[in-house]
Amino acid sequence: MTRHRADLLSLVAGLAVLGLGLVLLSGGVGDLPLEWVGPVVAIGLGVLIVVAARSNRTPDHAPDDEA
């Protein structure tokens, strides 16, 4: 694997997925109120879409595997 310029979309998505994974792994999701899940997911999706749209403006740095 070769080093490349920072891929912001992968970084943001990775941090979000890592955070959720750690919460689930610790078994603490049961303490989270359900009414917060929808807004948090919506905000997360919005951030990802913005990041994805911004990264698509720089095709020179397109990744090997596109999602």
């Binding site: 070769t2 080093r3 891929d7 992968s10 997925v17 890592l18």
Partner: peptide, 13 residues
């Protein structure tokens, strides 16, 4: 994914 932000890339994840 965090590793792929700098090395290798794997957006399919």
């Amino acid at each position: 994914l965090i590793v792929g932000a700098w090395w290798g890339r794997a957006r399919i994840l």
